[in-house]
């Protein structure tokens, strides 16, 4: 190859300039997306990481403190409380809302009367803003004259301060978020189910497979790409959704319903401690990146994509 190149330098130079132009073209095409990504994603991330290593004095000057903020965070009981809360919140909402979404999708995918109405009904919570949802459920959970307590009254049970009791507040939020999210995830499952060829079900039924067997061995594995997509979204949402806390609990009582992002918001805008907020944000970013890595690095390879 080198001999050939040496004996004919002109074609080689032409090839090299063509490759150069190709590269320039490629970068130009990537430029708009790259500018937006760098300006609004990559740069802020780097700035946050840098910011977490400094503290800002009252006069505006920054002082490098290294990992002192991280040390303070490790010693902060509210941070740990928020992290544990977030874990239970995720565990409570994700599997149930996904399972519910799948059941609803299979149910409304059938040919039946009132199918459109049922789909709409399941999807309605998604359309409502979180603030509105929180207000509706605030009424359900209101002690004594809320819907839930009136129902309890029918059975002769006394009132209960659902959101005011540390033992029930998280459960209440979880139920509400499941109600809000399941319909959204259902839409993805419904779309995926409609992509599946009815021939597969028929072929399985001719082989004598029961409905459950067909679902377990054919439908569910073929829905795995959707399940993964929905699961990733659900995980991100469990860290991202905090609007309802502002309306319903403000993280209380006794931080029993504080989630990580809500704590970050409080630290940054109520306590005005932006460098500690940056430190907490780095933790959140690390968690979310780990989930993304798990998806792209491991799960994607184990799932059948059509």
């Amino acid at each position: 190859m080198t001999d050939l190149a040496a004996s004919s330098p002109i074609p080689e130079r032409r090839a090299r300039s063509q490759a150069w132009w190709n590269a320039v073209n490629a970068w130009l095409l990537l430029l708009p997306a790259a500018v937006l990504l760098v300006a609004f994603t990559h740069w802020p991330i780097l700035a946050t990481i840098r910011h977490s290593l400094f503290i800002t004095k009252r006069n505006g000057s920054e002082v490098f403190v290294g990992t002192d903020s991280y040390g303070a965070m490790a010693a902060d009981p509210i941070f740990w409380k928020a992290l544990v809360n977030n874990f239970w919140f995720a565990l409570g909402t994700i599997p149930t809302s996904i399972a519910l979404a799948l059941i609803m999708a299979v149910w409304v995918n059938r040919n039946m009367r009132g199918r459109g109405f049922l789909r709409l009904a399941y999807f309605t919570p998604t359309v409502l803003p979180m603030i509105a949802v929180a207000n509706i459920w605030l009424f359900f959970y209101t002690p004594d004259y809320g819907a839930l307590d009136q129902l309890r009254g029918l059975f002769g049970l006394g009132g209960w301060n659902w959101l005011g009791d540390p033992s029930t507040v998280m459960g209440c939020l979880i139920v509400m978020v499941i109600w809000k999210e399941a319909g959204f995830f259902m839409i993805f499952y419904l779309a995926a189910l409609q992509q599946l060829s009815p021939d597969l079900d028929e072929a399985a039924s001719i082989e004598g497979a029961s409905r459950w067997y067909t679902f377990r061995r054919i439908t569910f594995p073929l829905l795995m790409p959707t399940t993964l997509f929905v699961a990733i979204n659900a995980v991100i949402n469990s860290f991202k959704l905090v609007d309802h806390l502002v309306i319903m609990t403000k993280g209380g009582p006794n931080n029993a319903s504080t989630l990580l992002l809500y704590y970050i918001y409080e630290v940054a805008f109520t306590f005005q401690d932006s460098s500690y907020a940056a430190t907490l944000t780095v933790v959140l970013l690390t968690l979310l990146s780990a989930i993304a890595l798990l998806k792209f690095g491991y799960l994607d390879r184990r799932i059948h994509y059509q």
Binding site: E202, A203, A204, I206, G208, A209, I218, H304, Q306
Partner: peptide, 27 residues
């Protein structure tokens, strides 16, 4: 009975062997 579909209706996530013995597994 057995049936061959126009689209073949093969299960895309299963290997050739698993596709062929699908009915035997069911039974």
């Amino acid at each position: 009975i057995s049936m061959v579909f126009q689209s073949y209706a093969l299960f895309p996530h299963l290997s050739v062997a698993e596709n062929i013995i699908f009915g035997l597994r069911v039974r």
